[in-house]
Design a protein around this nucleic acid. Structure first.
Lengths: 215, 215
DNA sequence: ACGTGTTCGTTAGAAGTTATAACCAAGCAG
DNA sequence: CTGCTTGGTTATAACTTCTAACGAACACGT
């Protein structure tokens, strides 16, 4: 392990502390949710008192934004490496579910209820479109003959979000419903709305995935 | 308007104040989300100072639970009256969407990210199953020939959640995917994940609904 | 090797929050 | 009219985020 050594010890220390802060923050979020994240508690767990933490993050919101960014980054990386390993759309779906179950609050931090005023910084929407690009590729690789719907026509005129991806409207449509259906089952499962209903959420998930791939 | 007059003026006043508290609480939630609901702010808006509010709700959580209950109640009532007016599954879907867009935070309060520890009291799950019953009825009314899936077989053995509804497994399955798909599109729309993508969420919603009804 | 200046941590404090305790006034009943 | 229940008040405790002021430790240029 050599180089990238233009790091002063000060900078090394700083990034390490920032990492530990995020570490502890994730622990809190995992057990109590993002709304219960307390900077004070994080600071005390690390062993420094309260306001010291503001040397590393300007505000609670900035820390949370960083966590959201990391979560997106993690999902994008996971999907990209799965895709590079030859995963098809079905495999990607299971990859997403596995990633979500690994840390439900991390998924919910991204796709859960946002605070009404919040606007993600630009680089985050960039990662989000990286994810979308992977999904679009996987959908495009799937040769399928869906009848053209009115919404397909609408998408032909509104494809900015595809970021120049050359897929035909039907593929764009497929990527969207892949997203919404996966999220529909997954978010209800993670939010606990299936608990006590008796059936196995995993089976519902794969059943829904099968339907998506069938038609 | 007569009777049910076994109400003492004290009780009348009490229920009226409780109603106003909820009123103001909804206003706050609608603009800033449930996590930003402040009992103090609500109390001041009503004109009484802070702790007076604890005569009416034992805690912030109790107030929020009551709001969740009211939200469920409102959705169930809306669906029931729509159903009574002859609405089919498609109409119910649009009813749900209309209800959600009317006050997005109200929908998200029910189906959004929960706090990890939270368990809804029994009477709320009761309302929830009332909603499910309406959906099951609407799905049962729709004669459809879906090929039996493995998940259908699983549902045949795990139908407790249907609360004794006599629908066959395929109908149970249809009700579930109706729920998850509607929620998938709707929650992403309400959370703002479609903003800036260019297409019209309403068209995606109806397209997804059409697919659901087609197969 | 020695100032100097940036950085990091501390404590103090302001302005919030939920929630409890103690107290007082007003309403309702015997 | 006496008293009890109820609804409001203020004071306080224990939190929260976040700013300010100060001190110490470190890195760097001379």
């Amino acid at each position: 392990m050599a180089e990238t050594d233009t790091e002063t010890p000060r900078e090394r220390y700083r990034t390490q502390v920032r990492a530990e802060i995020k570490e502890r923050a994730w622990e809190q979020i995992a057990t109590a949710g993002a709304s219960a994240l307390s900077l004070n508690a994080v600071a005390k767990q690390i062993g420094m008192s309260g306001p010291a933490l503001y040397r590393y993050y300007a505000s609670r919101d900035e820390l949370i934004t960083e966590l959201i960014r990391d979560a997106y980054r993690s999902l994008a990386d996971t999907l990209r490496s799965a895709s590079a390993a030859g995963a098809d759309l079905a495999a990607l779906a299971h990859t997403i579910r596995g990633w979500a179950l690994e840390d439900p609050q991390r998924y919910l931090l991204i796709y859960g209820t946002p605070v009404p005023g919040y606007h993600a910084p630009g680089d985050i929407t960039l990662i989000s479109s990286e994810i979308m690009a992977i999904l679009l590729d996987a959908c495009a690789a799937l040769a399928q003959d869906s009848p053209a719907t009115p919404f397909d026509a609408h998408l032909a005129d509104h494809r900015e979000w595809a970021n120049g991806h050359p897929a035909p409207p039907a593929v764009l449509h497929r990527a969207l419903i892949f997203w919404t259906r996966i999220h529909g089952v997954l978010s209800l499962e993670l939010a606990g709305h299936f608990t006590g209903m008796g059936f196995d959420p995993a089976l519902l998930f794969t059943a829904e995935l099968d339907r998506l791939l069938a038609h």
